[in-house]
């Protein structure tokens, strides 16, 4: 899984790719965890899952990123691996996600950055037959 960090005066952005939308969401989730902490230190002792639905892909990508931030801040839950099943219906885009990880343990987990919110600032999405790509900036 590859991602690029993007420069921003105050905050931080990422560019993530995936061969399809399920993979794009998975890579986005894993990248967000990669920015927050050293993922190699995370064990898998808990699985957290859910469903998110939006009528635009853009909103769904932002909502998905914010869901990870929320789980980290409120549930103290950190992920090692994210699995996503993406579906689209006539009116909605839906992701079924599972995050494999554990509760934050400050003695073992090295936190690199605290992301406070995913934003629409300079948001970009690119879609081709070969791959999908998204750029998201985060408020720190």
């Amino acid at each position: 899984m590859k991602y690029n960090l993007l420069d921003d005066t105050g905050d931080l952005g990422i560019e993530v790719k995936g061969e399809d939308f399920s993979k794009l969401f998975e890579n986005l989730g894993n990248s967000v965890y990669d920015i927050i902490l050293k993922r190699e230190d995370v064990f898998i002792s808990k699985v957290d899952g859910g469903v998110l639905k939006e009528d635009s892909l853009e909103d769904l990508l932002i909502k998905f990123s914010n869901m990870i931030i929320y789980k980290f801040e409120c549930g103290r839950f950190v992920g090692k691996m994210v699995k996503v099943d993406f579906r689209r219906s006539k009116n909605f885009f839906v992701v079924y996600y599972k995050i494999f990880g554990e509760r934050l343990d400050s003695s073992r987990h090295f936190i690199k950055n605290v992301l406070k919110a995913a934003t629409y600032h300079n948001f970009e999405m690119f879609e081709s037959k070969k791959y999908k790509k998204v750029k998201i900036y985060f408020d720190l």
Binding site: D59, K63, N66, A117, A118, T119, Y120, H121
Partner: peptide
């Protein structure tokens, strides 16, 4: 996080409202 979440929630709901009204902005934020 309280203020951040409130901002995120309303950016998202205002964004949907403007889309419904077909109003486009030079910057989504």
């Amino acid at each position: 996080g309280f203020g951040h979440q409130i901002c995120s929630d309303y950016v998202s709901s205002f964004s949907k409202d403007l889309r419904k009204k077909d109003i486009s902005l030079p910057d989504k934020q």
